[in-house]
């Protein structure tokens, strides 16, 4: 029975010393009480974390009337399909346009961002050139620049460049991702052997080819991490699109849905559309994110050693 309670050896712990079993007998009762308490505490806590999501799922199945007149956690008439249909047809299906925009900003944006970060980080790790040290310090220093504060000046700049209210106006500023450069630099230092680059050079390969064939390949798993972070950053971005975009056709989901939420004060039907739209917008990102945990966890560990 004691073996049931004893914590499983998580790591390469040596075989338990002979004395351990005897001392554990006295600890066993304590452990079991604590186990019940700990699990109960977690069960209570998980209610807090799940309530908004569960409510969202249930609310998305209700009609506007039922949303206000039936208890929040009880299903009413199943109206999900009608809601989805209303979501798809409202303002000629602008919701899906927003979804497409979010995907363009996030997928295209994060792919380009990752490429820029990769080639910069790779160059910093593989080459010794004048200005390298300065560039590294500038990248480090720029981590101190708060992104949202420069949103307003960036907007002013985009207006003067004529890029406000365009896809490019939102995509280009996102390509500057100093933390991504830093991650790529760290990854490249540890995973691209200089000897291999030398050998490729001796074989007559050009520098760009070496980067594409060797650098990108060796950095691949690290790049997925940068890609994910960049993707999340774009998917969640709010203040810059709010400033830069006035054309509803160009808006991402975050801006579109909050606009609906605001308008729902005067247009009651929009409330349920906001609810359903929120649910629909969360599902794909939650699946992507939770299924790729391995990669961003690697990024977190790499990020924490930067100090």
């Amino acid at each position: 029975m004691a073996s049931d309670v004893a914590p499983p050896p998580v790591r390469d712990s040596a075989p338990a010393p002979a004395g351990r079993r005897t001392t554990f007998v006295s600890g066993e009762r304590v452990s079991r009480t604590w186990m019940v308490i700990a699990t109960a505490v977690m069960a209570l806590a998980s209610i807090y974390f799940l309530v908004p999501v569960v409510w969202l799922v249930i609310a998305a199945t209700k009609s506007t009337g039922d949303l206000f007149s039936t208890p929040g956690f009880a299903f009413a008439d199943f109206n999900l399909l009608e809601n989805l249909q209303a979501l798809s047809t409202y303002q000629d299906g602008i919701f899906w346009r927003w979804g497409l925009n979010s995907i363009i900003y996030s997928v295209l944006g994060s792919a380009l961002t990752t490429l820029v970060c990769a080639i910069t980080g790779y160059a910093l790790a593989v080459y010794r050139f004048r200005g390298r040290a300065a560039l590294i310090s500038v990248v480090l220093a720029s981590l101190l620049v708060p992104g949202t504060v420069i949103a307003q000046p960036t907007y002013v700049l985009l207006v003067s460049l004529g890029l406000d209210n365009t896809y490019a106006g939102l995509l280009l500023p996102a390509l500057v991702y100093p933390f991504g450069v830093l991650l790529c630099f760290i990854f490249a230092q540890s995973s691209v052997p200089l000897e291999l680059v030398e050998a490729a050079r001796l074989d007559g390969a050009g520098e760009l080819r070496i980067f594409v064939a060797i650098g990108l390949r060796l950095l691949a798993s690290g790049l997925v991490t940068v890609l994910l972070f960049a993707f999340l950053g774009s998917w969640n971005s709010y203040i810059l699109p709010l400033l830069v975009l006035t054309d509803a056709e160009l808006m991402p989901l975050t801006v579109g849905l909050t606009g609906w939420n605001q308008a729902s004060i005067t247009i009651p039907g929009l409330q349920i559309l906001t609810v359903v739209g929120s649910l629909v917008s969360i599902i794909p990102i939650a699946i992507v994110f939770l299924s790729l945990q391995r990669f961003w966890k690697a990024g977190l560990t790499a990020g924490s050693v930067r100090g």
Partner: peptide, 18 residues
């Protein structure tokens, strides 16, 4: 999983929900 799930919800959508 349950503690981590909310992180997959964009902060703007989380604010809408709450």
């Amino acid at each position: 999983f349950t503690v981590f799930l909310p992180y997959a919800v964009p902060s703007v959508i989380a604010a809408l929900l709450w």
